[in-house]
Amino acid sequence: MTTPKHMNLFYSVGTVLLLLTLTAPTALLFGFGGAVMARSKNVLVKVIGNAYISIVRGVPDIAFFLFFVIALDQFFEWIRHKTLCPEWNEPIRQGNDFIVCTIAKLPLNSSPQWIHEVYGFFLAVFTFAIVFGAFAANVLYGAMRAVPKSQLETAVSFGMTDGQVFRRILVPQMWIYALPGLGNLWMILIKATPLLFLLGIEDIVYWARELGGTKTAKFTSYPHGDWRVWYFFGLLVFYLIFTRISEVTIDGLTKRLSRGAATLGSNLQGQVGR
């Protein structure tokens, strides 16, 4: 259990956690941008915002991951190519090959492997954020609508500008309505992490499959049969614990925020507590 190869499995847990902590705020930012755009009075901006939300939400995340990372990488390199090597006059696409000038490569070909890995990780965070940003945008858009109109009207009658109403009234208030949806999204995000290996990140599922697979004595000093079931069982427990902790935290937050509503739920709760 302690060969350097096994350490990769433990590192990859760290990778997954780091990815989650970076993706969540980035996705929220994308979502916020998307929601604001979808609410815009400018028709073009509104259409772009709505298109982002509905197209990305309409596509299964796997299908998105399978081609988007390469596209994103080429896009960045193309931008750098345009700015860094204006004198380059060969075509970028030569047959099947995508060729940019050497200094436009991301990361530079000569950079050490860890930079390549960090860059790959960054692309993965970005891709996840775009996908989950669309879902977050949908949640936030709904939450902004849910803030009672009268509140906003009152603010206007106090002489606040549109911007002030947005910043001081709408945004602080909407979180209460957005929390359940965002909590749900967080859970979905956790459970999407096994797809990371599609983005070229060697995540926990990758290593569990690799380490658990049958090992013949010729290639390792620790041969064993097909142990994938045990490794996957470990993953199952990991995910169950992780989602459970998240769920309890989110529940606590929601309860604190929605105290005092007279629903069948508050009644049932009394029964459960008995």
Partner: peptide, 18 residues
């Protein structure tokens, strides 16, 4: 509900097939 909501579908498929 906890087991099926708390784990990735990916892993559920693996176990189910097994």
């Amino acid at each position: 509900i906890f087991v099926f909501r708390g784990s990735p579908l990916f892993i559920q498929f693996f176990f189910a097939y097994f």
